[in-house]
């Protein structure tokens, strides 16, 4: 192999090394972002603590992804005196209550017209249902997900 040919081969390999080096660097930045989801000066993520995340807001003005922070007893319904007000026609005025007892969260339907469902299963009125973090809770056509870091 004459020297020019060798140099040309070297330059071609250098191009590939630099190109894939760049792609690796891009991959590294992505990996670091994923490894430290809260770092990098981004605005704060969802509020900490137990909360309800809107999955489907129905005709209420709650955008999917918005969150309600839960207190020990949280009343849910269309009336304005509930802690979580859902302005949807399929939600009753006093629809349900989510409360904390014996170290766990419970959802209790208050005899609503269109019912309350936990993970798709209908909850009997006035019979508290045990909830786990990640459960999908449906009031009428509004769907929310319970996120509770301590469970």
């Amino acid at each position: 192999m004459d020297p020019l040919e060798a140099q040309l081969l070297l330059v071609r390999l250098l191009f590939l090394a630099l190109t894939y080096g760049f792609i690796a660097a891009v991959g590294f930045v992505v990996w670091r972002e994923l490894a430290a989801p809260r770092g990098g000066g981004r605005p704060a993520a969802d509020p900490p603590g137990p909360r309800l995340i809107v999955i489907e807001g129905g005709s209420s003005d709650r955008a999917p992804g918005s969150a309600f922070v839960l207190s020990i007893v949280t009343a849910i319904g269309r009336d304005l005196d509930n802690q979580v007000v859902l302005q949807d026609a399929t939600v009753s005025g006093r629809h349900a209550v989510i409360h904390h007892r014996d170290g766990a969260w419970w959802a209790e339907d208050l005899g609503s017209t269109n019912g309350t469902r936990v993970n798709g299963r209908a909850a009997a009125p006035l019979r508290p249902e045990l909830l786990r973090s990640g459960d999908l809770i449906q009031f009428g056509s509004v769907r929310l997900r319970l996120i509770s870091p301590d469970l």
């Binding site: 330059v11 250098l14 191009f15 630099l18 190109t19 080096g21 760049f22 660097a25």
Partner: peptide, 14 residues
Amino acid sequence: LLLLAWLPALAAAG
């Protein structure tokens, strides 16, 4: 990253 993105083209011109 900008520098790393710019270098391969330089090597290609080599």
